[in-house]
Amino acid sequence: MSRLPQDLEARLTAAAPAGVEFSAETDQYGVTVAWLGLASAADLSPVAALLKDMGARLSMITCAQPSVPEEEEDEDEENEDGEAKAEAEPKETPKTFGGTPLDGTSYEIDYHFDIAGDALTIIAYVPQGGSIPSLTPLFRNADWHEREMMELYAVKVTDHPDPRRLFLDASVDGAVLERLIPFSTLVNAASTKGLWERLTAAGKKGAA
């Protein structure tokens, strides 16, 4: 049923020497959605080049910071209670199958491709402070996705031909999805306060 090439998994595995995790599922309409996790983000470029040869269309790029898997939560609570010192060795940080720590600060970058109507998502993991090669030289339409990713997260995209801000102004600090921005700051309530102070001062001056 699937329109993905029969040997897709074998060819992708061959293009990613560090290892892959492949899964695919076909729904009742006969549409296949496949996922390919990469053990190493360095394998992204050869895999993308292979997909380009196969006539795939890049549909979307999603960047996210996966939360820490469930088991770790208890430990976090203990830390907050100040019992961390009583604990012996801290538990090991869970890792992806490729060894990227899942500590809530690593990035998961999903490249969603379309192959003749079927969907294939390539998943790359990048640790905090790490970088990922740009796909824009291969897929022209990766441009905006990568520029947006760079302003929403602190992830570095190497060799991007035009790494300017996309939506956010250059005066705004980057990585906006990685920090809490109070609502009052977001809607620029500071200017309202400033306006109030100016008006109050002007009122006093007028009365004097």
Binding site: V33, S59, M60, T62, A64, P66, S67, E70, D110, H112, D114, A119, T121, H145
Partner: peptide, 30 residues
């Protein structure tokens, strides 16, 4: 999950990741 539909202007694609909370962990669409 990744889902797609044909909006009047063309393909809309959604990526949704959920966790144990009522809120999604990440929603991305193009």
């Amino acid at each position: 999950a990744v889902t797609r539909s044909e909006a009047p202007r063309g393909e809309v694609i959604y990526y949704l990741r959920t966790n144990d909370t009522p809120q999604p962990e990440r929603v991305k669409w193009r």
